[in-house]
């Protein structure tokens, strides 16, 4: 009886592991380091957007100064 239960538990354990491994994730991509490229690209795009925002911010500050000096 004990052996029976043990076998069932063991098979459940292994099927759980198998299920966990079946789920597709970008493991290889990460192992190859290629996901870092995507991160780099996104960071560059974000840097561009921030650069643009800062530019507008500065321009607005300048206009505010000009108008208050009038």
């Amino acid at each position: 009886m004990m052996r029976y239960i043990f076998t069932i538990l063991l098979s459940m354990f292994y099927s759980a592991i198998a299920l966990a491994q079946e789920v597709e994730m970008a493991d290889d991509l990460r192992r190859d380091g290629k996901i870092y490229i995507v991160v780099a690209v996104l960071l560059i795009i974000f840097a561009g957007i921030v650069f643009y925002l800062i530019n507008i911010d500065k321009k607005v500050s300048k206009l505010e100064k000009e108008i208050s000096n009038k």
């Binding site: 079946e22 597709e24 994730m25 996901i35 870092y36 991160v39 996104l42 960071l43």
Partner: peptide, 17 residues
């Protein structure tokens, strides 16, 4: 952006990455 792509996430069917 950095931690969001490189961090650990749960392995779930259908959802994947």
């Amino acid at each position: 952006i950095t931690a969001g792509f490189l961090g650990k996430v749960p392995r779930l069917p259908i959802l994947h990455e």
